[in-house]
Amino acid sequence: MLVVKNINVFYGVINAVKDISFEVNEGEIVTLIGANGAGKSTILKTVSGMIRPASGFIEFLGSDITSVESFKLVKRGLAHVPEGRRIFLNLTVQENLDMGGYIQSSSEVKALQQSVYERFPRLRERRNQIAGTLSGGEQQMLAIGRALMGRPKLMMLDEPSMGLAPILVDQIFEIIKELNKAGTTILLVEQNARMALTIANRGYVLETGRIVLSDTAKNLLVDDSVKQAYLGG
């Protein structure tokens, strides 16, 4: 579904992502794990066209998207739930969802909104509230709901559990599993490596911009070096 081949990404002279290749197959949950600054967010931003790789190519659903503009990718079924949620704080909950469904027809927006509200009843209760007044967990739900409005085939999530209380973390991971069951392929970036590997099929381990290890999630969970570096020994 998603094939990333030998991409290099620079910020000025900093080579943040070095010759990285990986793939995500339809129906999978794939996770990228790695320490802060390893290059995880940069990879997602490159896939969604927010930044351009200096070299390499990216293929999504069989077509080359390396230089496709960011705003054209939703239509192809790619969603990116960014790090730090980045919902529109000055817009209401409902307006945020409207923006998520920007490319949909207005009748579809209605139907999609209903399904988002069914999944997240809290959001329905707060639909006319300014999004900036939501709690962290609600904001993350809104960020995911907003992405769902685009009917994604592949959803990329960047640290969805960041800054949330443990009970909410469990809830978010539960939602990701459900979305995957319902047919959405998932590319998940997490610092919470244990949780991510628990729900994922496969994982890639990143260190300072390089992939140092890739395996099934099951194997990574018992890998000594992974345990030592990311699972707390």
Binding site: L73, R86, F88
Partner: peptide, 23 residues
Amino acid sequence: KIGKAMRAVSEDKAIAELMGINV
């Protein structure tokens, strides 16, 4: 729709773009 898009763009251009809005 365009009015909401204007507000979204004024708040966060990169994310508005991710929504499919032509900034």
